[in-house]
């Protein structure tokens, strides 16, 4: 297995992201994906802007986003290994999955921390 020494770190990020996603993701997806667009609840834009532009909100969201992305990378990597029996392309898959998580984290940092 390549990068054996990085494995505990990957697993730590995987479980941190797993916990945060388990607790935060359903309610956020319910609100942003269904309740707000379908008008089940209405949130005033100015109020939402206040809440979402608060520094504490941004820092918490950044932590959740980065951990969740590395959770995705780790789990999806093994889905490709086992589910599709692609273990022989291990190095490419590993680089692709964690690379995607790193790009996503950079994008999250840009959206959440720049131009506040």
């Amino acid at each position: 297995m390549p990068h054996r020494s990085a494995e505990p770190l990957a697993w730590l990020a995987f479980s941190a992201g797993g916990v945060l996603a388990a607790v935060f993701a359903p309610v956020v997806l319910f609100l942003a994906g269904l309740a707000l667009p379908l008008g089940w609840i209405s949130a005033d834009h100015a109020h939402l802007d206040d809440v979402l532009s608060h520094l504490l909100t941004r820092i918490v969201l950044l932590g959740i986003c980065v951990a969740a992305l590395f959770h995705f990378a780790h789990r999806f990597r093994y889905t490709l290994y086992d589910g599709l029996q692609l273990a022989r392309y291990g190095t490419v898959i590993t680089a692709g999955c964690y690379g995607l998580a790193m790009l996503g984290s950079a994008a999250a940092a840009a959206v959440l921390l720049l131009n506040r």
Binding site: A25, V28, A32, A68, L69, F72, H74, Y78, G83, A107
Partner: peptide
């Protein structure tokens, strides 16, 4: 295991 794809989608939606 496939739920991880939707965890990534949750991040994208949050950022959007």
């Amino acid at each position: 295991e496939l739920s991880s794809v939707f965890v990534a989608w949750f991040v994208a939606l949050t950022l959007a």
